[in-house]
Amino acid sequence: MADTPQDEAAKARIIKHMNADHADSLFYYLQHFCKLSSRNAHGATLSSISLSSMTLKTTDGKTHTIPLNPPMKSWSEARTRSVEMDREARSALDISSIRITEYEPPRKPVQVVLFAILTLTWLACIFQSFIVPGSWLYKVAEFFPGGGAETFLWMIRKMTWGFIGLHIVESFLLDRIRLRKHGVVRGTAVWWKWIGSCLIEGFACFQRIDATIERRTKEAEKAKH
């Protein structure tokens, strides 16, 4: 049976709504129901829908059809069905309903000071070969308490690889157990900001993102009442 004008209008509304407001759900649908990687699923759009299936198109031009079992009886079921699919996909992928959508920079004085100290530590590790007698960097390092420039250089040489390795591991863990779980797609601008920040400040980044998650969880709970 051919679709009626009312059917076509309903499908158009659903497609427009899903693409405009639920791109994250489409992303998770493809990962769970079609077993696509997050990279291949990112940026997908809903191209068509029927009572028995939906078809999504990925950025590489490929289409992926997800059967709706059981088929919907009418278009009025679309919202409920999409919510159920989203819940199933998130549960299977271990994705929280609390989403991180932006980067939270250090704001409190102690956070800013720590970020500055660790940034300087990174710079010292990277440019330690330029801290030589007679250079302005060496003269600045002479103010280091407990032995001046030579003590400073000895300490930097001893800690460089451990410092870098620790912060790389912390950034890996941030991606795996925080960012992915809370909807931050790898490679996006928000992801790079959090990862870059974690590379610099390490565990302090976890504390800040956990505070953000806690705040948004409370907001979500409050909205239910």
Results as ranks from 00 to 15, higher is better:
6 Q>W: 03
13 R>S: 11
14 I>A: 13
15 I>W: 09
17 H>P: 00
18 M>W: 07
19 N>K: 05
21 D>K: 14
23 A>P: 01
28 Y>R: 10
28 Y>G: 02
29 Y>K: 08
30 L>C: 08
32 H>M: 03
33 F>I: 05
34 C>A: 14
36 L>K: 10
37 S>G: 13
37 S>E: 03
43 G>C: 05
44 A>S: 15
45 T>K: 15
45 T>V: 13
58 T>R: 12
58 T>S: 09
59 T>F: 00
59 T>H: 02
65 T>H: 01
67 P>L: 07
67 P>R: 09
70 P>N: 07
71 P>Y: 12
72 M>R: 13
73 K>S: 10
74 S>E: 10
76 S>Q: 14
77 E>N: 05
78 A>N: 07
79 R>F: 10
81 R>H: 07
83 V>E: 08
86 D>C: 15
89 A>F: 05
89 A>H: 02
91 S>Y: 04
100 I>N: 07
107 R>A: 12
109 P>E: 03
114 L>C: 04
114 L>F: 11
115 F>S: 14
117 I>M: 13
123 L>A: 15
126 I>L: 15
127 F>Y: 14
128 Q>W: 12
128 Q>I: 14
131 I>P: 04
133 P>L: 09
138 Y>Q: 02
139 K>Y: 10
139 K>G: 10
142 E>Y: 02
144 F>G: 10
147 G>R: 10
148 G>A: 09
148 G>V: 08
148 G>C: 09
149 A>H: 01
157 R>I: 00
159 M>V: 15
162 G>H: 10
163 F>L: 09
165 G>E: 00
167 H>K: 06
167 H>N: 14
171 S>K: 11
173 L>A: 11
175 D>G: 13
176 R>D: 01
176 R>F: 01
184 V>D: 02
189 A>R: 13
192 W>H: 12
203 F>N: 07
208 R>Y: 02
209 I>Y: 04
211 A>F: 00
213 I>N: 03
214 E>C: 04
215 R>C: 03
219 E>N: 06
